[in-house]
Amino acid sequence: MNIFRFAGDMTHLISILILLLKIYATKSCAGISLKTQELYALVFLTRYLDLFTDYVSLYNSVMKIVFIASSLAIVWCMRRHPLVRRSYDKDLDTFRHQYVVLACFVLALVLHERFTFQEVFWAFSIYLEAVAILPQLVLLQRSGNVDNLTGQYVLFLGAYRGLYIINWIYRYFTEDHFARWIACVSGLIQTALYADFFYYYYLSRIKQDTIMRL
């Protein structure tokens, strides 16, 4: 465990807590893509299949349970909570994420570290995480306004990805056997997606500011 990875896990946890807090405090999920949240729940469920078979460390097991529970809690709130579900932008959140799930699964059947049930689903979860933010980015572009909590949510997710890339660079130089190409390449693609979002987000913010100032 190195400081970059720990900081990455913490910013990832913070991003999920921001979302839970926003939904709990405002009893609203306006501007949040349910499809992205479902994809993240699927990412955690398929990645942590080894929760009961491989014990890495207490920290590792606790965090896996926290991620699975919190992502399912968000999906449950957005689908079942009587107050929250009313504010869901159903007609804006129209990204056809089932195709993304299928594409990632096919890719995992082709590209994986070992052809075992657990490894194929692990690779699937890595690919899916890279594109899980797409419905949320589409929703933000459609709804036009990026309210600051959702903006912060994506900001912390971007920070988590960036810190993980530094973690991989650090591990590459400090450990001899470190070679995790699937996670690294997929993580780079995911981070590129976030970079694109930040470019768009801040560009539109600047445009809004200049319009306000004019």
Binding site: D9, D54, Y55
Partner: peptide, 10 residues
């Protein structure tokens, strides 16, 4: 201590 499991990252 962390066993070097196949995937020790979250």
């Amino acid at each position: 201590s962390e066993k070097d499991a196949a995937h020790d990252e979250l």
